[in-house]
């Protein structure tokens, strides 16, 4: 394998793992549920994207033909991540979970729960 390709794959793998790690760190560290929601849904999509692109490059380079099927997983995660986040936020609103003290416009969450206009 050429040096440059190996370097590219290694960098992509490490970057992807770092993003996955940061997402999970946010899950543990952030103060309330709504802020925790931001960590996994964002950091994991790019993390997984990097890992899958690395896998794609490696397999293409080894087998000599274009291997694109990892794109399916990336696409699937990109489509489902916002849906999951939206449903979790909806659930949290209905359960009246604690909202961090310094959140602006806390009153809006009551309107959102009843699906009224602000």
């Amino acid at each position: 394998m050429e040096f440059w390709i190996e370097l590219l794959i290694s960098v992509l793998i490490v970057a992807g793992a770092v993003f996955v790690f940061v997402g999970s760190l946010g899950l543990v560290k952030l103060p309330d549920f709504y802020t925790r929601l931001h960590g996994p849904t964002k950091a994991t999509t790019l993390g997984m994207g990097c890992l899958l692109v690395a896998s794609m490059t490696l397999v293409t380079n080894q087998n000599g033909f274009l291997s694109l099927h990892e794109l399916l997983i990336t696409l699937f995660l990109l489509i489902t991540a916002p849906v999951t986040a939206h449903m979790l936020a909806k659930t949290a609103l209905h359960h009246k979970l604690d909202i961090a003290e310094k959140t602006h416009d806390k009153a809006l969450s009551k309107q959102a729960r009843k699906r009224l206009n602000p």
């Binding site: 793992a17 896998s55 979790l88």
Partner: peptide, 24 residues
């Protein structure tokens, strides 16, 4: 409970990452 569901969902994604790494 939503916190636990979110953590489980993240765990699913991380296990995909592990499988991809094992495949590589």
């Amino acid at each position: 409970r939503p916190d636990r569901i979110l953590a489980l969902d993240t765990m699913y994604i991380n296990s995909i990452a592990l499988i991809i790494l094992f495949g590589i």
